[in-house]
Design a protein around this nucleic acid. Sequence first.
DNA 1: GCCAACGTTGGC
DNA 2: GCCAACGTTGGC
Length: 139
Amino acid sequence: MAYWLFKSEPDTWGWDDQQAKGDAGQEWDGVRNYQARNFMREMKVGDKGFFYHSQTDKAVVGIVEVCAEAHPDSSTDDARWECVDIKAVRPFAEPVTLEQIKAEPRLAEMVLVKNSRLSVQPVTEAEWTLVCEMGATKP
DNA sequence: GCCAACGTTGGC
DNA sequence: GCCAACGTTGGC
């Protein structure tokens, strides 16, 4: 199983919106970046991901699970763009901020730190475990 | 609100 | 195929 990170501006689509969708999940549409799309193509049902709030929060706030593999993005007619569906699993007991992540040497290689603009990113198992620990949350 | 980093576009 | 110009993102 692989781990990922999904980034969203909370004003546009936040954790509360995601959680309101429940197990039905939600299409992660609107991604217009090839790297991010390619990562979504690699995702399998059951893969886990962090839900990250950019801009105002700058923190990992919850855990999501992939519930549908890549399919055409319904928000566009452009066949280049695909997306997966994700559903909320559980919120973080303590959100883990970007500041905390940057302060942790073992997370220095996280894509979030290295390439902050990429909106869908892979996360290693070690990073996954550590960030969950920092958030006092079951992986 | 600013600016740096990055990706995409389009002219040559 | 290269590169300059432009637009967008996200941290500060």
